[in-house]
Simulated assay, not measured.
Amino acid sequence: MEHVLERASILCNGSRIERKDLPVQIREANLPTVGDTRGTSHEESPWVSRSVESFEKELIEQTLQKLDWNRTRTAETLGFTRRTLFNKMKKYNITPIPK
């Protein structure tokens, strides 16, 4: 995720990373982005005051759910190695939901 954000910050036009600045796999995942305030004011937006770790945890969880907990595809989509994804899942206490 760190590498994805670094790349996006280099490619973005201006001081804000937009959805268009992210890799196609993340853009097509249709996940919310930091500062996504569509339909709300900044004060009401759940993404405005979030820490990077909170945002990262949420992004990992949503991507895992969207990809039916396929950790290989999730890691690829987020630009992680599988080992990094497993370490982040452990750090954030993310466990698969039983089917």
Results as ranks from 00 to 15, higher is better:
Met1Gly: 09
Glu2Lys: 00
Glu2Gly: 01
Val4Phe: 03
Leu5Ile: 15
Glu6Pro: 02
Glu6Ser: 12
Glu6Ile: 08
Arg7Glu: 14
Ala8Trp: 03
Ile10Asn: 11
Ile10Gln: 12
Ile10Ala: 10
Cys12His: 08
Gly14Trp: 02
Gly14Cys: 07
Gly14Val: 10
Arg16Lys: 14
Glu18Arg: 04
Glu18Gln: 11
Glu18Thr: 02
Arg19Leu: 13
Arg19Ala: 08
Arg19Pro: 02
Lys20Met: 11
Leu22Ser: 02
Pro23Gly: 12
Pro23Val: 06
Val24Ser: 07
Gln25His: 09
Gln25Phe: 10
Ile26Val: 15
Arg27Met: 14
Arg27Gly: 04
Arg27Phe: 10
Arg27Ala: 10
Glu28Trp: 08
Glu28Gly: 05
Ala29Arg: 02
Ala29Tyr: 02
Asn30Thr: 09
Leu31Asp: 03
Pro32Met: 05
Thr33Arg: 01
Thr33Val: 12
Thr33Trp: 01
Thr33Leu: 01
Val34Gly: 01
Gly35Trp: 03
Gly35Thr: 00
Asp36Ser: 02
Thr37Gln: 06
Thr37Phe: 03
Thr37Pro: 00
Arg38Glu: 04
Arg38Ala: 03
Arg38Gln: 06
Gly39Asp: 04
Gly39Ser: 06
Thr40Val: 15
Ser41Cys: 05
Ser41Leu: 06
Ser41Ile: 00
Ser41Gln: 08
His42Arg: 11
His42Trp: 08
Glu43Phe: 14
Glu44Asp: 12
Glu44Lys: 02
Ser45Lys: 08
Pro46Leu: 11
Trp47Gly: 03
Trp47Tyr: 14
Val48Ala: 07
Val48Phe: 05
Val48Lys: 11
Ser49His: 13
Ser49Tyr: 14
Ser49Thr: 03
Arg50Thr: 13
Ser51Met: 07
Val52Tyr: 15
Glu53His: 14
Ser54Thr: 10
Glu56Lys: 10
Glu56Leu: 11
Glu58Leu: 11
Glu58Ser: 11
Gln62Phe: 01
Thr63Val: 09
Thr63Lys: 02
Gln65Trp: 06
Lys66Trp: 01
Lys66Asn: 12
Leu67Gly: 09
Asp68Cys: 13
Asp68Asn: 15
Asp68Val: 15
Asp68His: 15
Asp68Lys: 15
Asn70His: 09
Arg71Val: 03
Arg73Gly: 01
Ala75Glu: 04
Ala75Gln: 00
Ala75Lys: 00
Glu76Met: 04
Glu76Ala: 07
Glu76Gly: 00
Thr77Phe: 04
Leu78His: 05
Phe80Asp: 01
Thr81Arg: 05
Thr81Cys: 08
Thr81Val: 06
Leu85Ala: 08
Phe86Val: 15
Asn87Phe: 07
Asn87Gln: 15
Asn87Pro: 06
Lys88Glu: 12
Lys88Pro: 05
Lys88Cys: 08
Lys88Phe: 06
Met89Asp: 09
Lys90Gly: 09
Lys90Cys: 10
Lys90Gln: 15
Tyr92His: 11
Tyr92Leu: 04
Tyr92Trp: 03
Asn93Val: 06
Ile94Ser: 08
Ile94Phe: 02
Thr95Asn: 14
Pro96Leu: 09
Pro96Asn: 11
Pro96Thr: 11
Ile97Pro: 02
Ile97Trp: 08
Pro98Asn: 10
Lys99Trp: 06
Lys99Asn: 06
Lys99Gln: 06
